[in-house]
Design a protein around this nucleic acid. Sequence first.
DNA 1: CTGAATCCCTTTGGATACTG
DNA 2: CAGTATCCAAAGGGATTCAG
Lengths: 115, 115
Amino acid sequence: MSTNKQKVFHCPVEATLSLIGGKYKCIILYHLAERTLRFSELRHLIPQATAKMLTQQLRELQSAGIIHRKVYPIVPPKTEYSLTSYGETLSPIVKAMCAWGEEHLADRILPADKG
Amino acid sequence: MSTNKQKVFHCPVEATLSLIGGKYKCIILYHLAERTLRFSELRHLIPQATAKMLTQQLRELQSAGIIHRKVYPIVPPKTEYSLTSYGETLSPIVKAMCAWGEEHLADRILPADKG
DNA sequence: CTGAATCCCTTTGGATACTG
DNA sequence: CAGTATCCAAAGGGATTCAG
């Protein structure tokens, strides 16, 4: 169900946005940049995203080769998401967004839950 | 009609996205980073955005203090958009997105029109 | 636990026509 | 030229339920 239309872009920024422009994608990449995470951990870290949205965004990132999905065939189920090496090349962008947010909007950011 | 709800964010990236997460905002910032542009120039540079969308995104960027809108009271009308100094602090993000696109998706990016 | 599926409302966004 | 206004279709996205 991925959008495999080979679109042509009018500028480099638009091209990049075609991969990471989704509503929660950069946030997912931000958390995965730190470490591999399970689905439930991502849900906890991104509470404003419903399971449906989170799954959708994860699938799109996976289709783009940006993240890796590892399923453990156990009960109860366990799935781990991690950045691929390709996905890691996006880190400078996410880092820049993170740094800007911390510098300019720090007072509106809740402290991370160290649960 | 801007959303002035003082939302609280769960991570710095989300905070940043609240300002530049719009569909064409980063593309607008990319073009304005190079120079001041008129409305019609932006339309030409971002052909996939309709006038309505472009206006909307410009208004939101203006409300956030990221861009400046200068109207010349002449006939025919002339309006110029430029980055504020606050908006210029976002440049590292846009630059990173631009660099990534050029490096990884160069073959799908149309050459810029030098009109 | 990790999803998929459904329902349904909201938002986005394109086309078109019109104005100062 | 630089928008606004209106209409409408498509996509986004939340709540809930169900399944392996």
